[in-house]
Design a protein around this nucleic acid. Structure first.
Length: 212
DNA sequence: CTAATGATGTCCT
DNA sequence: GGACATCATTAGA
C-alpha cells in the first residue's frame, strides 16, 4: 500500500491576475479541509463550478459599493478566503483574485467529493443524499466543508491551513470547460446579468444545475 | 421534469 | 425596511 504523493499547494500566481483565467485554473483543483477531531477524516473535493465577480464596476459583486465591513478582504491580496452568509442560512466560499486593491473573487459553486464523504454527509445532516450531490451548490459546499464566516481571511494557498486549495495531480487531464451567465443576480441588470462568468467542468455530475 | 414557497439573519440605506 | 451570489420540499404536468 503506497499512498499517493501529497498534492502541491495551489500557486498564488494563478489567482493574482485576470479572474477568468484564474477560474479556469481553479477548475479541477482540490479543496481540502483538515479533520476537526484527531480521529476525523480529511475532506477533499474537486472544484467543478465557479463564478467570477470582477471589480467594483460589476453590479453583481459584493464589492459594488466599495469596501465595507463584510467585503473588505475582496480588496486585499489574492488567495484569501471570503465567506459570507446568504439568505440568513447558507455560507458561501469565495477565493479572492487579482491584485491587492482591485476587488475580485471566485465563488465556489460546486465540488465533486473525493475523500471524507462520511464527514461531508454528517456535516450536511442529510443521511440519504447521493454522493455527487453532497457539495453541488454554493450553500452545499459551505455545509459539506463546515464553513462559516470565521473562515474569512484564511490563506487558501498556505500549505498548512485547515482549509486550503491544492493543485490536481500532475497526471490528471485538464478538464473541458463550459461557461454561462451567473445565477441569482437579476438585480444587477445588463450587461452584468449576461456576462458568461459562470464556468464549470463540462462532464461533471456534481454541478449545481445545468449550464449552457 | 418544472414551478412555487418558506426558512432565516446580516448587510446597507 | 428591503433585499439577498440558496436549498429542500411540495405540488402539479
Amino acid at each position: 500500500m503506497t499512498r499517493p504523493p501529497p498534492l502541491d499547494p495551489f500557486p498564488r500566481e494563478q489567482l493574482a491576475g485576470d479572474s477568468l483565467l484564474a477560474a479556469r485554473a481553479l477548475l479541477g483543483a482540490r479543496l481540502l479541509r483538515e479533520p476537526d477531531r484527531p480521529d476525523g477524516e480529511c475532506r477533499v473535493g474537486r472544484i467543478v463550478e465557479v463564478e467570477a465577480y470582477i471589480g467594483q464596476e460589476d453590479r453583481a459583486s459584493h464589492a459594488r459599493m466599495g469596501p465595507t465591513q463584510r467585503n473588505r478582504v475582496m480588496f486585499g491580496p489574492p488567495g484569501i478566503a471570503y465567506v459570507y452568509l446568504v439568505y440568513g442560512m447558507h455560507h458561501c466560499l469565495n477565493v479572492v483574485t487579482e491584485a491587492e486593491g482591485r476587488p475580485a473573487a471566485l465563488l465556489i459553486r460546486a465540488v465533486e467529493p473525493l475523500e471524507g464523504l462520511a464527514a461531508m454527509r454528517a456535516a450536511r445532516g442529510r443521511p440519504g443524499i447521493a454522493d455527487h450531490r453532497l457539495a453541488a451548490g454554493p450553500g452545499c459546499v459551505g455545509a459539506a466543508f463546515s464553513l462559516d464566516r470565521a473562515v474569512t481571511g484564511t490563506d487558501l494557498c498556505s500549505r498548512t491551513a485547515s482549509l486550503r486549495l491544492a493543485s490536481a495531480p500532475p497526471d490528471e487531464p485538464a478538464p473541458s470547460i463550459i461557461t454561462g451567465p451567473r445565477i441569482g443576480i437579476a438585480y444587477a441588470g445588463d450587461p452584468w446579468t449576461s456576462m458568461p462568468w459562470r464556468l464549470a467542468v463540462a462532464d461533471s455530475r456534481a454541478l449545481s444545475r445545468r449550464i449552457a
